[in-house]
Design a binder for these strands. Structure first.
Length: 413
RNA sequence: GUGGGCGUAGCUCAAUCUGGUUAGAGCACAAGAUUGUGGAUCUUGGGGUUGCGGGUUCAAUUCCCGUCGCCCACCCCA
């Protein structure tokens, strides 16, 4: 698990801000849920047979003998919160987004940490029409963040009845070929046959490819409609009929978005339709769709593509440099600091016993854009010297003009 | 869970193969040269249980075993 330190955190703040602006504008509202949940929640939602549940969860028994787990994803928590707080009793449907840390006890590698962060979006209690919106939100947000080389992969796992029939058919078919399948697939055959389609073992490929399941379960008319909408909206995609997500609750249209510049872990976002989750958790039938994206992966891809567009050096920072350690002068500095903060700027006042050289060195080190120098001479003349440390220019500003001056150069008015 | 690689100063590394003075360097940090104008230079300084534990040896950063951590890949996911 990583620490995120000053110098790195600015990128995170930038991305979080982007997400809030984008999804709020799209009518989504933020939800935050506890990191710790009863283990049972994830078993019932993500599925006992999923890799996440049976080998990747941070679980423990708490002091009250309860089985607890640090959330490996957040869709289940959102559903739990919606049911528990009865949010659907006062609204027909919900549009929610979340930002936060998730935990999976996997072996770490490039693009995968045991604590990672996701931004996610859920549309709760809306049918198939919401599929287009959720896919577009995911795709457009990645574009909005500046990501290039995006590939959208789409599949349809079939509606409620189709999925069940398809699983039945696949089980019957693959059972005949059981001897040629790998150990994992033989296990999947019993537990979760769809995941056989997702198998990467070379030996399984001929068996999977020769299965004529697509003839019996062609893409639905609904899926064709969705495709047309995406095309009309200028969102390119690839249909991948073997795309199966690792969480068991998906049942309809599912998708994954990959990006260039990430190496082996190139999935930057993924999601799909899950119409049974609320029932599985004890609620009534509630059709839903959603996606989540990996913040680490998005940030890495943006950096590798050299396309992160944000001000590393914030312009709204003023370093106040008193040159004399007298009570009146320091009080003046404090008053100005308070006024600058009230006007929305960031400022720091350093001790008066620093020499100007020391002040300059420190301000440069810490990346301040402006320095406000207050020495005894200026204090007498009721002015300050404002240096632009980046442009290496300085001007004298009258005491009454300090706030308006900074507002102007920072473009705050 | 499987396979490979790596652990020496805050960071990047050297010395390890071939055991042997006080484990070095660059960067970074601190003080001064410098009483009010810059990221420079010079001088000086603080910093290390060589990941941890055990073994072999007169002697271990170096060789052996174990362990932990990290990195990369598989699996899977974001």
């Amino acid at each position: 698990m990583d620490d995120i330190l000053p110098g790195e955190i600015e990128k995170w703040q930038w991305l979080e801000e982007k997400a809030r602006v984008f999804f709020e504008a799209g009518g989504f509202r933020e939800i935050r849920t506890p990191i710790l949940e009863p283990t049972e929640l994830f078993i019932r939602s993500i599925g006992q047979t999923s890799d996440i549940v049976h080998k990747e969860m941070f679980s423990f028994v708490d002091r009250g003998e309860r089985d607890m787990t640090m959330r490996p994803e957040m869709t289940a928590s959102v559903a739990r919160a919606v049911l528990e707080k009865g949010l659907l009793k006062t609204a027909k449907s919900l549009r929610l987004y979340y930002i936060g840390p998730m935990f999976r006890a996997e072996r770490p590698q490039a693009g995968r940490k045991r604590q990672f962060h996701q931004i996610g979006v859920e549309i709760v209690n809306e049918g198939a029409n919401a599929d287009f919106e959720i896919i577009a939100q995911a795709y457009r947000f990645l574009q909005y963040a500046g990501l290039k080389g995006i590939t959208l992969n789409l599949n349809d796992l079939g509606g409620e009845n189709d999925r069940a029939k398809m699983c039945e058919w696949l089980t019957a078919y693959f059972s005949m070929e059981k001897a040629r399948l790998c150990k994992d697939c033989q296990w999947r055959l019993e537990k979760n046959v769809l995941r056989v389609l997702d198998c990467k073992v070379p030996g399984c490929q001929p068996v999977i490819e020769s299965a004529p399941w697509e003839d019996f379960f062609p893409l639905s008319g609904y899926f064709t409609e969705l495709s047309k909408k995406l095309e009309a909206d200028g969102i390119p995609f690839l249909v991948n009929r073997r795309l199966v997500r690792g969480l068991d609750y998906y049942n309809g249209v599912v998708f994954e978005i990959t990006a260039e510049g990430l190496g082996a872990q190139n999935a930057v976002a993924g999601g799909g339709r899950y119409d049974h989750l609320y029932q599985d958790l004890g609620g009534s039938a509630t059709p839903c769709t959603g996606f989540s994206l990996g913040m680490e992966r998005l940030l890495t891809a943006l950096e590798n593509q050299d396309s992160m567009v944000f001000d590393a050096l914030a312009t709204d920072r003023v370093y106040i440099a008193p040159l004399e350690d007298t009570a009146e002068l320091l009080r003046f500095c404090r008053e100005k600091a308070i006024a600058l903060r009230a006007a929305g700027m960031r400022t720091e006042q350093c001790p008066g016993e620093f020499s100007l050289t020391q002040h300059l060195r420190k301000a440069n080190q810490d990346g301040w854009r402006y320095m406000m120098i207050v020495g005894p001479e200026e204090f007498q003349k009721k002015i300050v010297v404002v240096k632009d440390l980046e442009k290496r220019e300085q001007v004298e500003v009258g005491n009454e003009q300090i706030i308006p001056y900074f507002m102007k150069v920072m473009g705050l008015c």
